[in-house]
Simulated assay, not measured.
Amino acid sequence: MSAPQNKQALIVLDMQNGLFHAPQPPFEAHQLLQNINQLIDYAHLKQIPVFAIRHVGSDHTPLASTSPLTQFIAELNIDHDLDQVLEKTRPNCFFQTNLEQRLKSLNIQELIVCGLKTEFCIDSTCRAAKDLRCN
Rank of each mutant, 00 (worst) to 15 (best):
K130N: 11
Q8F: 11
Q47H: 09
N107G: 05
L63D: 00
L45R: 12
I122A: 00
T89G: 02
M15K: 04
I73Q: 08
I112R: 07
T70G: 05
S105C: 06
G18P: 02
D131L: 13
A74W: 12
T97G: 02
R133N: 01
E110N: 05
L103K: 01
K104L: 12
H21V: 13
L82S: 11
F72R: 00
T118F: 02
V50M: 08
A3D: 03
T61A: 03
L82P: 06
C121D: 02
Q5P: 00
Q71S: 13
I40V: 15
Y42A: 14
L132D: 02
F72P: 03
F120D: 11
D81W: 03
H80S: 13
I53Y: 00
I11Q: 00
P62G: 03
P91V: 12
I36R: 02
I122C: 03
D14P: 02
F94L: 10
K104T: 06
Q31L: 15
A52S: 10
L99D: 04
I48F: 07
K7E: 01
L132E: 05
S58D: 03
I40G: 07
M15C: 14
Q71I: 15
H80N: 14
A29L: 09
T97N: 05
N6G: 10
L45V: 07
M15W: 01
L45C: 06
V85S: 09
T125Y: 03
A52M: 10
F51V: 06
F95C: 06
N135Y: 12
I108H: 03
I108R: 04
C121A: 05
R54H: 12
L39N: 04
V12T: 03
N98K: 13
V12D: 02
L10A: 10
H55Y: 14
Q109R: 10
R54K: 15
G115R: 01
N17V: 15
Q16K: 09
L111V: 11
A29R: 14
A128C: 08
V85L: 14
I11F: 05
E119K: 08
Q31D: 14
S67N: 08
R90Q: 09
F27A: 10
V56C: 04
